[in-house]
């Protein structure tokens, strides 16, 4: 999946000469945590987060002191070394980027112009969809040897029963000679498929609660 498919395109932005108080209002009004700062050409020249705003705001114990500071332009507090992405970036790469740089928002730039934004929340939502957990289904975990062709062999057993698979995840097992295949299958009665899998010699974890077997 690429960034273009999950990014938000109605980006809320400010100009560097907007006041800090404008940013405070925007963050509150739209329940957002990041505002890209753009110039007249819509180039990203900075970014501010709710944390930057908080740093610039008076403490709640001195809420009415130095409030004239909030009239200062955003350019005085914005970060200018902005990490940006491209619409054709892979979502997986973005996730790794978030993790590596400990950031939670990425302005997306094409032709040097801002075209979208991705946040941690968008990534999480995509992840929920990847797991298939938003559609009625049962989860079945199958422990298989870490060899090529295992996924196709196991999936063939689902297909023989005409059970639609809504998602597959492959987890590493503690023992590196094994993998855990996690299926979300569109059936309320997985007992038949579980029997088939067991007959074919697979270990089925349904449910997988370490220390307890069903």
């Amino acid at each position: 999946m690429i960034v273009e498919q999950i990014m938000k395109t109605d980006v809320i932005t400010l100009h560097p000469n907007h006041r800090i108080i404008d940013a405070i209002q925007l963050v509150k009004q739209h329940h957002i945590r990041h505002i890209p700062i753009v110039n007249d050409e819509n180039h990203v020249i900075g970014i501010i987060t709710d944390r930057d705003i908080r740093d610039a705001s008076p403490s709640i114990f001195q809420a009415n002191e130095y409030i004239e500071d909030l009239q200062k332009p955003i350019s005085t507090i914005m970060k200018t070394d902005v990490i940006t992405g491209h619409p054709l970036d892979f979502v997986e790469e973005i996730a790794a980027l978030f993790y590596e740089y400990r950031i939670s928002c990425l302005p997306i730039v094409k032709d040097e112009k801002l075209v979208g934004i991705i946040t941690e929340t968008d990534l999480l939502h995509t992840f929920v969809q990847l797991t298939g957990a938003h559609q009625p289904s049962s989860q079945i975990e199958v422990k298989v040897p870490n060899l090529s062709g295992m996924l196709s062999k196991v999936a063939a057993i689902f297909s023989q029963r005409n059970i639609n698979i809504s998602s597959v995840l492959v987890y590493p097992d503690k023992d590196e000679h094994y993998k855990i295949l996690v299926f979300r299958a569109q059936t309320m009665n997985p007992t038949g498929i579980i029997a088939d899998l067991k007959n074919a010699g697979y270990t089925v974890l349904w449910p997988n609660l370490p220390g307890v077997s069903s």
Binding site: Q135, P136, S138, Q139, P190, P207
Partner: peptide, 9 residues
């Protein structure tokens, strides 16, 4: 819990 059991929600 919908962790394993249908429908998951």
């Amino acid at each position: 819990t919908g962790r394993y059991l249908f429908p998951g929600t």
